[in-house]
Simulated scan of single mutants.
Amino acid sequence: MKVLDEHTVAMPDRTGNKIADSFRNIAENDRVGMLFFVPGMRETLRVNGRAYVTDDPGVLARMRTEAKEPDLAIVVEVEQVFFHCGRALIRSRLWDPASQALAGELPSAGEIVSDQLGVDVDPAQFEAMLEAGYRKLY
């Protein structure tokens, strides 16, 4: 996210799954709500407003990272900003390292994809593909 001015923020469209769901959603309804998490911090920041997609070179240049400039950005004209108390995160134990061990008890991403899509996917091969894709992004 980049703060463009006192009432406007922008989120770059980085390389991802190329589905563009957010763009379709914004075209149908420009109302957005964003929730920001900071690892270890219990309180979250909520930002509500109206969004639009832009390819403005001045906006995109401000979001350059590692010599990569996004093709598009979502600009949000902020109408509301407020903190949420941390009760939900405390109850969920989201930042508690002991609760993160539960992830090992869940099926892997490859197992979930195979089950949910009903296709014959080798979970290990799918996870290797995910890891290779993640390395390209970072």
Results as ranks from 00 to 15, higher is better:
D13V: 14
G33A: 15
M34K: 07
F23K: 07
N17S: 11
V47H: 06
D13G: 03
P39T: 02
T15E: 15
T15G: 15
K18I: 02
F36D: 02
E6Q: 05
V47A: 11
I26H: 01
D55V: 04
V38E: 12
D13A: 11
L45H: 00
M41V: 12
R24L: 10
A20Q: 11
A51R: 05
M11S: 05
T15S: 15
E6Y: 01
N48Y: 09
V53Q: 08
R46Q: 08
T54A: 05
M11D: 10
R31P: 02
S22T: 07
V9T: 05
D21R: 13
L35F: 04
G33I: 06
N48C: 10
R62Y: 00
V9S: 02
N48D: 05
D56R: 11
R62W: 00
E43S: 10
D30R: 15
H7S: 08
V38L: 14
G40K: 03
N48V: 04
K18V: 11
G16I: 10
A51H: 10
M41Y: 04
V9L: 01
F23L: 14
N25P: 13
R42D: 10
R62P: 00
A20N: 09
R24I: 07
H7F: 09
K18Q: 08
Y52L: 14
R46A: 03
E43A: 11
H7N: 12
N25Q: 06
L45K: 05
P39N: 05
R50S: 03
P57F: 01
D55K: 05
G33C: 14
M41D: 13
L45G: 08
N17D: 15
S22E: 03
G49N: 03
D13C: 12
A10P: 12
L45P: 02
F36Y: 00
H7T: 14
T15P: 13
R24D: 07
P57L: 00
E28C: 06
A61G: 05
K18A: 14
R14K: 15
F23E: 12
V38S: 14
T54D: 02
D21L: 14
G58M: 00
G16Q: 10
A27M: 15
F37I: 08
M41I: 09
E43M: 06
N17Q: 10
R24E: 06
V9D: 01
V38I: 15
N48P: 13
K18H: 11
D13P: 03
V47S: 08
E6A: 07
D56V: 01
E28K: 05
D55R: 02
V32R: 07
D56M: 07
M34Q: 07
A20E: 07
V38Y: 12
T54I: 04
P12E: 04
V53H: 08
A27K: 13
A51V: 06
N25T: 08
V53G: 10
E6S: 13
D13M: 06
A61Q: 12
G16Y: 02
V47P: 08
N17K: 12
D13W: 00
S22C: 05
F23R: 15
T8S: 10
N17P: 13
R50E: 02
G16H: 07
I26E: 06
V38F: 06
D56I: 04
M41R: 14
R46G: 08
R31Y: 01
V32N: 03
A51T: 01
R14A: 15
